[in-house]
């Protein structure tokens, strides 16, 4: 079974062993090499939208009618992080069908929601399995769940546990009390590092056809693109999608588009300066690049707002109303200047 799941790129993974007659599946608290490889693939976007486990009721250790019930999502990455942090517990896992999306995003979309929880409680016949009437939900599921409505419709009371799975055992040991630290979302360097591949992959996909087209059009250009131009372009992609997210709190300013533009400008000036891009005969092309590349970097950085844990829609909207017209104007102006220089300019030496 293990080998099989590694060889498949995008398929839902069935856990071993299969559900028993009562529909409850036993889950292990240790991850296999295959689980770890699967997590790595999901981070890079390979088979990510199909990385799921079956929704339903799972058991960890040897739970009984008094054991706690933890509610979570059916994204396999979420499920794996949860179970590997439950080594000292006997408990039940009630997995909702969130279409393979993590708890927080699914709560925002409403799939980790009140209706799904009510239906899942009924479909697994939770009342028959346990004697108490208490559910522990991840705190980040709260944007999709109305705790009072759950109580009214099912008789189960909802308690919000900690943000991170690693705190669950401590939370339960403390009598279901979360410290302030357990209730806060962080966004540290490692958190951001894990998100970089999903920023980089779309940027790379956009780059490939551009590079392919340039190989052909370079034959007809008066001032074809060379290594320095490609380096400046790659620099803009990297500053927008990797460097700005990594150095996020250290780049001055609050707006992401501004942070990305500053980083992109420094990168472009640096690369053009090093490759003698400012020397006579090449200045028009460089002017176009100074308009286009920082704008590209700014746009990519702006897109990172969707990955952060602290940007509000009101803030993003306000930022975009100012930044988007500037990005588009600089992009078009830079593009026209570069195209003019490319087709009609002088060949740089």
């Amino acid at each position: 079974m293990a080998k099989e799941c590694c060889s498949q790129t995008s398929t839902s993974t069935r856990l071993e062993p299969a559900p028993s007659k009562d529909g409850i599946t036993k889950a292990s608290t240790s991850l296999t090499t295959c689980d770890i490889f699967g997590a790595w693939k999901a981070r890079w976007g390979i088979g990510r939208t199909n990385y799921t486990v079956e929704p339903g009721l799972y058991s960890i250790g040897s739970p009984d009618g008094e054991s706690p019930v933890l509610v979570s999502a059916n994204y396999k990455l979420t499920f794996d992080v949860l179970r590997k942090n439950l080594t000292e517990l006997d408990c039940w896992l009630l997995i909702l069908d969130t279409k393979g999306v993590n708890v927080w995003c699914a709560a925002g979309e409403g799939t980790f929601g009140t209706d799904e929880l009510v239906n899942r409680i009924e479909s697994v016949r939770l009342s028959d399995v346990i004697s108490h009437r208490k559910l522990i939900l991840p705190q980040l599921g709260a944007p999709g769940i109305n705790a009072h409505e759950i109580a009214q419709r099912t008789g189960f009371s909802v308690t919000y546990g900690p943000v991170r799975a690693e705190d669950i055992q401590g939370y339960i040991t403390a009598g279901c009390n979360a410290t302030k630290e357990m209730r806060r979302v962080n966004f540290n360097f490692i958190d951001r590092l894990k998100l970089i591949p999903m920023e980089l992959v779309p940027a790379m996909k956009m780059t490939l056809p551009i590079m392919g087209a340039l190989l052909i059009t370079n034959q007809f250009a008066k001032r074809p693109f060379g290594k320095a131009d490609i380096a400046a372009y790659a620099g803009a992609i990297l500053t927008g999608s990797v460097i700005t997210p990594m150095l996020l709190p250290y780049i001055p300013g609050k707006a992401f588009s501004w942070k990305g533009w500053i980083a992109g400008l420094l990168g472009t000036v640096g690369i053009l300066g090093k490759s003698k891009g400012f020397k006579k005969g090449n200045r028009l092309m460089s002017a176009g690049q100074l308009l286009l590349f920082p704008a590209l970097s700014s746009y990519l950085a702006l897109n990172f707002t969707g990955s952060t844990t602290y940007t509000s829609p009101s803030g993003v909207k306000k930022e975009m109303e100012i930044a988007m017209p500037l990005i588009i104007a600089a992009g078009i102006a830079g593009g026209i200047i570069m195209l003019g220089s490319y087709l009609f300019g002088r060949r740089s030496k």
Binding site: I145, N146, G306, Y310, T311, P313, G315
Partner: peptide
């Protein structure tokens, strides 16, 4: 969403430029 008396209000959504 979890306030039983609707004392808290907010225009909820995702803070995402792509959205």
């Amino acid at each position: 969403l979890n306030c039983p008396t609707k004392a808290v209000t907010v225009n909820a959504g995702v803070g995402c430029a792509a959205a």
